Simulated assay, not measured.
Amino acid sequence: MSTTEAVAPDEESTDRWDPVREMPPSAKLVAKVLDYNDTLTQSQLAEETLLPPRTVRYALSRLEDADVVDSRFSFTDARKRLYTLAI
């Protein structure tokens, strides 16, 4: 029985990333960067990933469509959105 208990946490961790597995590499990279950082803006994500802003926008839209990323308006600057990983 202890072997099934040891396998269960691994299955949970793989299930966590299942919605991201079939996405483009840029979306996977953005998701991983958000996993390491709590909350980032789109420009911060572009800086961290070294991806062009347009590619980051596309990756974020794909991640939002799959409910992998949550976004909200920044209280300090309403023009910016803050992104967090939802999985």
Rank of each mutant, 00 (worst) to 15 (best):
M1R: 12
M1K: 10
T3V: 11
E5H: 09
A6M: 12
V7H: 08
A8F: 11
P9E: 00
P9K: 02
P9W: 01
D10M: 14
E11R: 14
S13I: 07
S13Y: 06
T14R: 13
T14D: 09
D15Q: 14
D15F: 09
R16D: 07
R16K: 13
R16M: 13
R16L: 14
W17H: 05
P19M: 02
V20M: 02
V20G: 02
E22H: 06
E22R: 09
M23W: 02
P24Y: 08
P24C: 09
P25N: 14
P25H: 08
P25E: 12
S26N: 15
K28S: 07
L29F: 03
A31D: 01
A31F: 01
A31R: 01
A31V: 00
K32N: 06
K32G: 05
K32Q: 11
V33W: 00
L34F: 01
L34K: 04
L34D: 03
Y36W: 07
Y36M: 12
N37C: 09
D38Y: 11
D38M: 08
L40Q: 02
L40F: 01
L40P: 03
L40H: 00
L40M: 06
T41Q: 05
T41E: 05
T41K: 05
S43A: 15
Q44D: 06
A46L: 03
A46S: 06
E47K: 15
E47Y: 08
E47M: 09
E48F: 07
L50V: 09
L50G: 13
L51Q: 06
L51Y: 08
L51H: 06
P53M: 09
R54Q: 12
T55C: 05
T55W: 06
T55G: 05
T55M: 11
R57N: 12
R57G: 07
R57T: 12
R57K: 14
A59P: 01
L60P: 00
L60S: 00
S61W: 05
S61I: 03
S61G: 04
R62K: 13
L63N: 01
E64I: 06
E64T: 10
D65R: 13
D65C: 07
A66M: 08
D67H: 03
D67F: 02
V68S: 04
D70C: 08
S71W: 07
S71N: 11
S74T: 11
T76Y: 10
T76E: 15
T76L: 14
D77T: 05
D77F: 08
A78K: 11
R79K: 11
R79W: 07
K80S: 12
R81M: 03
Y83I: 03
Y83N: 01
T84D: 02
T84G: 02
L85K: 04
I87M: 11
I87N: 10
I87V: 15
